[in-house]
Write a protein that binds this DNA or RNA. Structure first.
Lengths: 146, 146
DNA sequence: CTCCATGCAAATCTTTTGCAATCCT
DNA sequence: AGGATTGCAAAAGATTTGCATGGAG
């Protein structure tokens, strides 16, 4: 089922009584042309027709609510975003040196969190699982021989 | 072994050829009087003798390198920090409404991440596992009856 | 004595907001 | 028409940095 992102977004907007505007669609389309992970500034710079930064942020929030985008923190000063057109369930391995991001499945890990949430009485929503370290490339460069 | 935090910090500073100053010790001591999780501003406000905000940030970075503090992101605009005097291994459950934070052990979950890191060739360092949702209190308030 | 560290204030940077003009429905 | 949305520029916050003065080794 999980239809075309545009469908999803438009439905979302209608449902919320919001307008389907050119700026909003431009942002949505911009997403498709960027790597899966991106920063607000990158998206802003890639848009055509141009959309103001303010609107980009405003729209990112809507896309998040619509379930098409996820905000992720990689330990840097600014936020990163992740396209979520296909609702996978995965964690991130972030390279501390070059920022490269790898993904992996989190089946077991997620279950552990769900269990903990239940024990503490939390109604669990999103789960974030991230590992920080050195990617293979930077690792090789780092230890030329130890 | 894992001695007194002050010992750890002083050793760290010596090892790095840095000075053991009054401001640095004040920050370290301030940590002990705050809840386990705190924000830079809270720490800054609690210090006596007074230490400038700039120095608080500079010192937090040193404490992080010394392994006494961990920077954590709870999805808010500003960073949060966590005291790590006893190197536990845990994840966080963050309430989206009130910000309350619960902790839980992450044995199995961590192993899953280690396994993924190995598969991808990452040299794994820190692992962050966080769940977002509603704490019991906010949950009760949220669904007065659905 | 020589650097390192601190404070202060200014500078950065990202994200948010007020408001008048403009666009959907 | 009528409320929602946009762009612009200013505001807001958190964190960082330059630089002269004071402090640790």
């Amino acid at each position: 089922m999980e239809a075309d992102p545009r469908e999803v977004f438009v439905s979302f907007l209608r449902r919320e009584g919001l307008h389907v505007t050119r700026a909003r669609l431009a942002v949505l389309q911009g997403l498709a042309q960027l790597p899966k992970h991106f920063e607000a500034a990158e998206l802003w710079g890639a848009l055509r027709p141009r959309v103001s930064a303010a609107t980009v942020y405003r729209t990112l929030e809507l896309l998040e609510r619509a379930g098409l985008v996820r905000k992720v923190e990689f330990g840097e000063a600014h936020a990163h975003y992740e396209r979520v057109f296909g609702r996978e369930d995965h964690g991130h391995l972030v390279c501390r040196r070059c920022g490269r991001v790898g993904e992996f499945a989190v089946g077991a890990a997620r279950r552990a969190v769900e269990q903990a949430a239940q024990a503490l009485g939390f109604a669990l929503g999103e789960v974030v699982i991230q590992g920080y370290g050195l990617c293979p490339q930077c690792r090789a460069q780092e230890e030329p021989r130890v």
